[in-house]
Amino acid sequence: MTASSKQQPTLYLTELDVTRLERIASRAGAAPLAEMLDSILERAAIVPADAIPKDVVTMNSSLTCALEGEAAPRQWTLVYPDTADFDAGRLSVLSPVGQALLGARAGHSVSYRLPDGREQKVTVLELSFQPEANGQFTL
C-alpha cells in the first residue's frame, strides 16, 4: 500500500476564501499562518464557487470523519481560524488536520502530521453540508 506516496488532493478555493485566508495570514505575528497558507495555495485551484464539485470538503463544510485508531467518528465543520473551537467541532483550516481535509473528497482518506511528528490518517465518511452545493457562496 502506498498511501503516503499519494499526491495531496487538489484544493478548490473560491476567491472569497483566498481573500479571507490571506487577510488572516497577513496579521502581525502570523508568520507561521502565512507559511501554512502558502502550503495550501500551492495545491489550490481557484475557481468560481459554482464550479466546485459537490463531494469536496470546502470552507464551512460539515463532515463526518473517522480518525485512524479511534472507534467513534467525529463531526467537524471546517472553519476560519477566528471561529475555530475544537471542542465544539469547529476545526481550523490552518490546523494540520484542517489543512489535510480541505480539498478531500467524501469516501477518501488523507494523512497529516501530528505535532509530535507521527502520521495520522483521517477518512471523510460523509459530507453532510457544503456551502457551494447549497448555493451559499458568501459564508
Results as ranks from 00 to 15, higher is better:
L37M: 07
A34R: 14
E22P: 04
L21V: 03
N134F: 09
R105S: 11
V79D: 00
L78R: 02
G103M: 07
L127K: 02
Y80P: 00
A30W: 09
V47E: 09
V124G: 00
A51Y: 03
G98P: 00
T64C: 03
V110C: 08
S111A: 15
L139S: 08
L114E: 12
R20L: 14
L11T: 11
S5H: 10
I40M: 13
R74A: 13
V56F: 04
T64N: 07
P73F: 03
R20N: 14
P48R: 14
T19M: 12
T83K: 11
L91I: 04
K6D: 13
S5D: 13
T83E: 14
S26Y: 02
L114A: 13
D85L: 10
D85P: 02
A104M: 02
Y80K: 02
M1S: 12
R113Y: 03
V93P: 01
E42Y: 06
A28Y: 08
F137P: 05
Q7V: 10
R20P: 01
D82H: 07
V56R: 03
P32R: 12
I40R: 00
A71P: 03
A71C: 03
D116A: 08
R23C: 04
K6S: 11
A30H: 14
A3W: 12
E132C: 15
L33D: 10
S61T: 11
A100S: 13
P48G: 07
A104E: 01
G98C: 11
L33V: 06
L67A: 07
A30L: 02
E119C: 01
E35Y: 06
E42R: 10
S5C: 06
S62K: 15
V93E: 01
N134Y: 12
L114Y: 11
Q7T: 13
E126Y: 02
E68S: 15
P53T: 03
N134K: 10
S5I: 07
L13Q: 03
V79N: 00
G89Q: 05
G107K: 07
F86V: 05
A133G: 15
D116C: 05
C65K: 00
A72S: 15
I52R: 02
G107Y: 06
A31P: 01
I24F: 15
S128V: 15
I46A: 06
E70I: 09
P9N: 13
L94S: 02
S39W: 04
L101I: 06
T83I: 09
A49F: 04
